[in-house]
Design a protein around this nucleic acid. Structure first.
Ligand code: MN
Ligand code: MN
Ligand code: ZN
Ligand code: ZN
Lengths: 147, 147
DNA sequence: TGCTAAATGAAATATTGTTGCATTTGTGAT
DNA sequence: ATCACAAATGCAACAATATTTCATTTAGCA
């Protein structure tokens, strides 16, 4: 689902959202678009030692505000971020897809190509959005021999 | 859904799970069974000032292990705990129901009486469990006037 | 009643989230 | 190309939460 993008496209993305083109932001975009799974702040820190923790924190926040990425919680409740497929606007996300948590490799996958059936809530509850989580084994882990 | 229970029943629950009957555990059970929404660790701390934070932390952990309560994450990613309806065993939960996050009062509701339709995942993904989250306004907040 | 493993409380450490502020830097206007 | 200024970064500091260690207390049982 994640489409390959080059540096020029990342620069365009930043400009479109009125964000200054900076090295940390381009590197975060590049990393997140290159992965098929969600990325946690620790993931970013482990790769980008030279970028301050707080800078990463703020980049993730502003990207989420702008509708570039969305937040997912993994099995441990730590925040992971994944690129938004499309149609997400500033402060108005449309990421109602399945999030698959692999219990073995701990990776979080966004599963966009899955039909989410309409649901009827009990009387009185007014739902604005839904998120579906699944826990299990991802294809990569399924192929590997068990520990 | 939450059934009313008395102290004797809480004592039985602890005995059944080979847990010693202690005051902190009984109070946590009592509080969690009295609520219709999930309880966070800060919630417990605010009520039970005299019980150590770490004790609460350990009680929640052992109760979850034993299948007495299950963990839900709220909108901020903080862990909330709710009593398991039934059928949950040690290290083997069956809590595949809807979790409703109210964006106004921040309460988390377990919605058990909702049919979760079967879903077919993409090739290779083996799901073991599902959790559905909904965000919106709960019945209580809907009735109250807006701030 | 006393023994013992389990549970608690207190302290200490690790991780994560968050804010304030001084400094640097990207960008649009000159 | 240079300038001015808002935006972005880095650093320090603080808050909240998660987790471990260990001495002390206590529940359950012989
Ligand atoms: Mn997603
Ligand atoms: Mn629940
Ligand atoms: Zn995996
Ligand atoms: Zn509410």
């Amino acid at each position: 689902m994640t489409q390959v993008k080059n540096t020029f496209q990342f620069e365009d993305m930043l400009k479109k959202h009125h964000l200054k083109k900076t090295a940390p932001r381009l590197r975060v975009l590049s990393m997140m678009y290159s992965k098929t799974t969600a990325t946690s702040q620790p993931d970013l820190e482990n790769v980008m030692h030279d970028i301050d923790r707080v800078t990463l924190y703020r980049i993730l926040n502003i990207f989420e505000e702008k509708g570039i990425i969305h937040k997912v919680f993994d099995l441990n409740g730590t925040a992971n971020y994944a690129v938004c497929s499309s149609g997400c606007q500033e402060n108005h996300h449309h990421d109602e897809h399945l999030h698959f948590n692999c219990t073995r490799c701990k990776n979080v996958y966004c599963i966009n190509d899955l039909y989410l059936p309409g649901l009827t809530l009990p009387e009185g509850f007014k739902a604005e959005s839904f998120t579906l989580y699944a826990n299990g084994i991802c294809p990569k882990c399924e192929k590997k021999p068990h520990h």
